[in-house]
Design a protein around this nucleic acid. Structure first.
Length: 364
DNA sequence: CGCGTTTGACCCGCGC
DNA sequence: GCGCGGGTCAAACGCG
């Protein structure tokens, strides 16, 4: 656990350096040196966005921009041909988890910050996992996940959802390993589990999470034909952290956007710099968690790029991660909460699956 | 009544 | 083969 970003496979999207972020043009991804251990580092980021007021990513994303553009804007121009899927070494992660847990891994930053920020606003740290990349590693990870959802796999999502429904037993295509949609996970510091992201979700299940007192909730986009799902769970290491994992791509527009709220400038998205600028300058704008959901469609590309990049810069222990100070307006909270981001949150739930190295990074 | 949540049962893959 | 755990289904229920 203590290490290594040296290993290209030890992809740790949760490891980042806020300072880098300030320096880099892209506020969400950081390929810089990992030093989140120092909570202080957070200040750098924070100072940039004292009010945690960012433009809504959703807004931006709903604008007219294609993913290619986005990825370019995000300065993720590396080749995506190389798929570097974090190997979900089960054993490894188990050990790491155990070790981490034993060591009280809450990773300083997490534990510390958390305590320091009892008010729990919202901030998020995200990471992506490339599960649908198709690499061997990917396969491994999938196995861990047990690729369920045979229905979608068999009938090609959108279309078959309905029909399959009736047939749980129709193991018709068992052999066809269900292809998992690319998943995108991120952390959000919030008191509420289900963060508003502009889309409408229906909860379809809840399960207790092993080794965690917090249950994991399963949501599905209520839009017809949209097979996007998301899982929400709370980090047991830091209950203030909500781990949200999106799976799939929305094939429709964000309802919120449709309702019209934006004057978003996709502009901001076209350039990392502009994004940063916008975020910093546009105090009224919000940068919501939702941004990730919008990001989903480009996940493959994005993730590949991120990971590839990581691979290239592994000497820097680069991590692909998306993070932000979120202001998530929630019905239950009359006030918007502001939170500093928590980095490097050790979680042994979904994150472990998504970010294999997540649990091992906790050590300087 | 429509929509969303709750929750127990069920399915399925994996490890032992 | 069995048990475990993740993921999903679907009936029951709640709410506006």
């Amino acid at each position: 656990m203590s290490n290594e970003k040296k290993n290209p496979y030890q992809y740790d999207p949760f490891d980042y350096n806020p300072h880098e972020i300030n320096r880099t043009s892209f506020p969400f991804f950081n390929y810089g040196t990992p030093s989140i251990q120092d909570p202080q580092n957070l200040h750098g980021f924070e100072s940039d966005h004292p009010n945690s007021s960012f433009m809504s990513f959703t807004d931006c994303l709903h604008g007219s921009m294609d993913y290619n553009t986005l990825s370019r804007a995000f300065d993720m121009s590396c080749s995506s041909s190389e798929v570097i899927s974090p190997p979900l070494d089960h054993e490894n992660s188990k050990n790491q988890q155990a070790a981490a847990a034993a060591a009280g891994v809450g990773d300083h930053s997490v534990g510390t910050s958390t305590t320091e920020n009892p008010s729990t606003p919202n901030s998020s740290v995200s990471s992506s996992s490339n599960e649908a990349a198709g690499s061997h590693e990917h396969e491994d990870s999938e196995k861990k996940k047990k690729e369920k959802q045979p229905k979608v796999a068999v009938c090609d999502e959108a279309a078959g959802d309905e029909e399959d429904k009736s047939k749980k037993g129709s193991k018709a295509k068992k052999k066809e390993k269900r292809q998992r949609e690319p998943r995108f996970a991120f952390l959000t510091k919030s008191e509420v589990d289900h963060l508003e992201d502009g889309y409408r979700w229906r909860k379809y299940g809840q399960k207790a999470v092993k080794n965690s007192p917090y249950p994991r909730s399963y949501y599905r986009c209520t839009t017809q034909k949209c097979v996007v799902k998301k899982r929400v769970e709370r980090s047991f290491q830091d209950p203030s952290i909500v781990i949200t994992t999106y799976e799939g791509q929305h094939n429709h527009q964000c309802p919120a956007t449709l309702r019209g709220n934006l004057n978003l400038n996709a502009v901001g998205m076209l350039s990392p710099n502009s994004l940063l600028t916008s975020a910093s300058l546009n105090g009224s704008a919000r940068f919501q968690h939702e941004f990730l959901t919008q990001f989903l469609p480009m996940n493959n590309q994005l993730q590949l790029q991120l990971q590839s990049r990581h691979h290239q810069d592994d000497h820097q222990a680069s991590n692909s991660m998306i993070y932000s100070n979120l202001v998530v307006p929630h019905p239950h909270h009359h006030q918007q909460q502001h939170q500093r981001q928590q980095l490097h949150v050790p979680d042994y739930g979904l994150l472990q699956d998504l970010v294999p190295s997540f649990g091992q990074k906790q050590e300087p």
